[in-house]
Design a protein around this nucleic acid. Structure first.
Length: 203
DNA sequence: GCGCCGATTGGCT
DNA sequence: GCCAATCGGCGCC
């Protein structure tokens, strides 16, 4: 489909910045997965920033460490994949200096490539349900804990440059689905995107 | 050791 | 709109 032409992967320098800036830079970019030789891809339309030790909603709150979240303290641009509610995988890109524990959660994608594979993995046909949610998009792209701790640039799942969004195209809202510090406005959504998770239309 | 809880999802009391 | 599924981490006994 891409005729062998490879789009540019986002530079590591982007991920060394603070989580909110990285979140802004990720919106509109393309998440490309080549897990087990199967190519799937989607445009990032919804993200959330988690700031690290000072953020009560962060898994790194007060520098809490345990075997499950070590990747969060790794170098910028590496993956942090965790299990949610004992069932689903959710994926983040680590940002900022190592040890800070900041990251950006990828919450929704517009499916672009490998839609048949996404349907097979998700066991759902409705396109709007393939990648609308952090757990759903991981399932659609084959993302599991196997990715946890990998530097994104040397992993089978990478983020490539996508569309540049003007500020008017970016909707900033409180984070959703959390109980602590839920009012912090660190959720970014591509304005008007029908591919965002269902919390999108709530204020 | 035990019980509760969550950055979720899907099915239906 | 409500709740079960499922499990590691954490608080508390």
């Amino acid at each position: 489909m891409n005729g062998g032409r490879r789009a540019a992967t986002l530079p590591v320098s982007l991920f060394r910045q603070d989580a909110a800036t990285v979140a802004r830079g990720l919106l509109g970019a393309v998440l490309v997965s080549e897990v087990r030789g199967c190519r799937t891809a989607g445009r990032i339309v919804e993200v959330e920033a988690y700031l690290g030790a000072e953020d009560p909603a962060s898994h790194a709150w007060q520098f809490r460490r345990h075997p499950g979240n070590e990747a969060l303290y790794g170098p910028a641009g590496s993956w942090y994949v965790y299990r949610s509610y004992g069932l689903h995988w959710c994926t983040n890109l680590v940002t900022g200096p190592p040890g800070q524990g900041a990251a950006v959660l990828v919450r929704a994608l517009e499916p672009l490539e490998g839609i048949a594979a996404m349907r097979r993995r998700r066991r759902v046909t409705e396109e709007g349900l393939l990648c609308a949610g952090p757990g759903r998009l991981c399932q659609a792209l084959g993302v599991t804990v196997a990715l946890d701790g990998m530097p994104m640039h040397r992993s089978p799942v990478r983020v490539e440059r996508g569309v540049e969004l003007p500020d008017e195209a970016v909707l900033v809202t409180p984070r959703i689905g959390i109980t602590r510090a839920a009012d912090w406005r660190l959720r970014l959504v591509m304005r008007g995107s029908p591919w965002a998770s269902r919390g999108h239309w709530k204020k």
